[in-house]
């Protein structure tokens, strides 16, 4: 017993060092394997307020651009209004619509903090639990896809940016519906790579890449970018496609969080099917 105490006393700095390092490694491990969000939640309540103050201050410098982009978006929305379509219908009837039910709603949010130059980038937004934000909701901006909500506190949420090694988004080529997954290489914040597009699919530079709608996170046909370069290595079954991103991550200010009303139903159905499959084995 005495020896143990002497030992601990003698090497207590080293033991403390090991203890602290194992603790941080444990955090990193937990964070990289399980539900990432649970740990992040405590942090964005603290730092969110700081970033909020700074974002308020900074937003003044960008008012002109923000106005311009809002105007553009207004124009686009106006063109989609019912009144801007020519009505070809002769009979006038009205149905209480039971065919079309609203599936997606959008929550407008402001970007408080953002980075593009790390290997794993995150955003902080000024919307949280009290505004109806939940984990695993998609985030888009006027131009295209931004990322996926990871952590939610009462008033803020953190978003896994598309520019993150953990981000993988199901995407397709708009013309021929060939789908693959979009990942980021980590060296250029304006381009991503589209993986798993089969070699028999024809790819051309400039073709539009949009979301596939296979996940419950993003609706179909949200723009991601366009094909920048593509090549097919000899003996390779998949194209190597570089995608020029439509979203300018460097100057994001306003984004929309997507709420999918049927998400839980779809997810639970899929997990149910999964478990049934494993049960059958």
């Amino acid at each position: 017993m005495r020896n143990i105490i002497v030992f601990i006393y003698k090497y207590y700095v080293f033991l403390l060092f090991l203890l602290l390092e194992f603790f941080s490694l444990y955090l990193i491990y937990r964070y990289n394997t399980y539900q990432r969000a649970s740990f992040i939640n405590f942090s964005n309540g603290v730092s969110g307020n700081v970033f909020n103050t700074v974002a308020n201050f900074k937003s003044y410098f960008r008012l002109r651009q923000i106005n311009d982009s809002l105007q553009l978006e207004n124009a686009r929305l106006r063109s989609e209004l019912f009144t801007s379509y020519y009505n070809n219908e002769i009979r006038d009837f009205k149905v209480n619509d039971s065919i079309y039910k609203q599936q997606y709603t959008y929550i407008a949010a402001k970007v408080l903090n953002n980075s593009v130059n790390r290997r794993n980038n995150y955003l902080t937004l000024n919307r949280g639990r009290i505004h109806g934000v939940k984990q695993q909701m998609g985030v888009i901006c006027d131009n295209g896809v931004v990322g996926i909500v990871m952590g939610v506190s009462d008033r803020f949420c953190t978003v896994l940016s598309l520019l993150n090694s953990n981000a993988k988004i199901s995407a397709k080529i708009a013309d021929n519906n060939a789908f693959g997954s979009l990942v980021w290489d980590g060296d250029d914040p304006t381009t991503c790579r589209l993986l798993d597009v089969n070699k028999h699919v024809e790819v051309e530079n400039g073709k539009r890449i949009v979301t596939s709608g296979f996940s419950t996170i993003f609706p179909e046909n949200i723009p991601i970018g366009e094909v920048y370069t593509h090549s097919l290595e000899a003996g390779d079954n998949f194209h190597t496609i570089k995608v020029k991103l439509a979203t300018g991550f460097g100057n994001l200010t306003s984004v929309y969080i997507i709420n999918n009303f049927y998400k839980e139903e779809m997810d639970s159905l899929e997990t149910e099917a999964q478990t049934r499959l494993t049960d059958d084995k």
Binding site: L20, E21, F23, S24, L25, Y26, L27, I28, R30, Y31, R36, F39, I40, S43, N44, V46, S47, V50, N113, S115, N120, Y122, T124, G151, T158
Partner: peptide, 11 residues
């Protein structure tokens, strides 16, 4: 806390 990461700066 200020870079939305967990443990890496700590380590």
């Amino acid at each position: 806390v200020f870079s939305s990461t967990v443990g890496i700066h700590t380590f």
